[in-house]
Design a protein around this nucleic acid. Structure first.
Lengths: 224, 224
DNA sequence: ATAATACTCGAACATGCGTTCTGCGTCAAG
DNA sequence: CTTGACGCAGAACGCATGTTCGAGTATTAT
């Protein structure tokens, strides 16, 4: 018996480690007895004792009375993964598909998993993904097959310098550009500095469908 | 009663969806009774009945006799997230950092989380990540700040058409290019078709540090 | 020395929860 | 019509699993 009542004891650490390992291995949390077995604690009450402490320390969360109702606290309750619905494809000559009004439900097949650690912690609903079709957005450093994660937003919330997806009805054109509001309308600046910006006059309509927050490219055996 | 014994029925789908949602929300699987409640099945035996079917179909895996012993079959039991060590930065004028010999251990702070669903299911060790510094790799559609996920590999396993990170000692140059072995040496082709390839002669040394499998760009308020 | 606190154990208890059995209605094939 | 497979309900059963209690042993403070 060395330590007393300060910080994490040896058993605390062992329990935490086991909780994590078990969850990852089995897909669900262990029972109190399983924890005891693994950490050489022969009594379920002792395990319960430590579990209580860990809960007080904020290390874990417990659902009382229900079996296997333990989970690590730091992993967000919704899982570390965020499922983002893929609304469709983004093509140069077609309007941008926007997710259906029912934003919360979507099929598992048409979604991508993104680690929460990548995304700003605030509103993570409003996100949707598009698959890029064609090479028309190379100037935005986005290629055919890339997946762009977008945050649903209108023209009002868009700030200068944001990269946005815009639909120009009068030109039948969809494009990804840096957005700048100017006196005489809007300037849509390609990411590639050597290319000329698109100037959209005040009278021309322009629909901002979303702000690009992330681009993902899977490089498979891309034979040129 | 419409359907008979073919494919996924309405209840199968509902159960599957609930399993997934519950697991993501609570961090552990539901009980049979909870499933029944959610899917409007009033008897636990019926839920069990469907669970058995789903198991036969290979949609779920069950651990008999233990509570909450159900999990989706497709989600990898080792966790859906893969932690990939960030070995360092990749700069045009410097050699590529390679992960230390101890490939398996690394700090949490210097790693990125990638959903397994993005990566080829086979060998997922050997992966490491680099942060791109500078704009020298724009021709590879990779910009300053991007994160490239690489698979550690040598020249032997590299196939034509792979995008690789190479270090050219004689030129003090690091670059990302599509790789082609040719009679007279190697051709390193930029992703941008308008740019000229680099030809590396047989006598010149060339070190392939890895194959690019994924590129991730987080678009924050990038003010041009 | 005595008391208080932290830690441990084992066992009993109460319920959570998977399993199994009986029975009922529907529908298609013989 | 009978038979059997299928979908369903409800209840009983029994093991799995969280909770609680009484008690014992250190370690530290008074």
């Amino acid at each position: 018996m060395v330590r007393k009542s300060k910080g994490l004891g040896d058993r605390h650490k062992k329990i935490l480690a086991f909780l994590k390992a078990y969850q990852e291995r089995e897909g669900y949390p262990p029972t109190i007895r399983e924890i005891g077995e693994e950490t050489d604690i022969s009594s379920t009450s002792v395990v319960n004792y430590y579990l209580d402490q860990l809960e007080k320390m904020g290390k874990i969360e417990r659902q009382r009375k229900i079996s296997r109702g333990v989970r690590l606290a730091n992993v967000s309750p919704l899982g570390e993964m965020l499922k983002i619905p893929v609304a469709g494809r983004i093509v140069a000559g077609e309007p941008i598909p926007v997710p259906s009004s029912d934003f919360s439900y979507f099929d598992a097949e048409t979604s991508v998993d993104i680690a929460r650690s990548f995304l700003p912690s605030d509103k993570n609903d409003e996100l949707f993904a598009l698959e890029v079709e064609g090479e028309s957005m190379i100037d935005a450093m986005v290629n055919d097959g890339d997946i762009v994660i977008m945050k649903s937003t209108g023209a009002e919330q868009t700030k200068n310098g944001d990269m946005v997806a815009v639909w120009l009805p009068e030109r039948d054109e969809t494009t990804l550009k840096y957005f700048f509001k100017e006196k005489e309308g809007y300037r849509l600046q390609p990411a590639n500095p050597t290319m000329e910006p698109i100037i959209v006059g005040k009278e021309e309509s322009l629909e901002i469908k979303g702000k690009v927050v992330m681009v993902i490219r899977q490089v498979q055996k891309t034979v040129i």
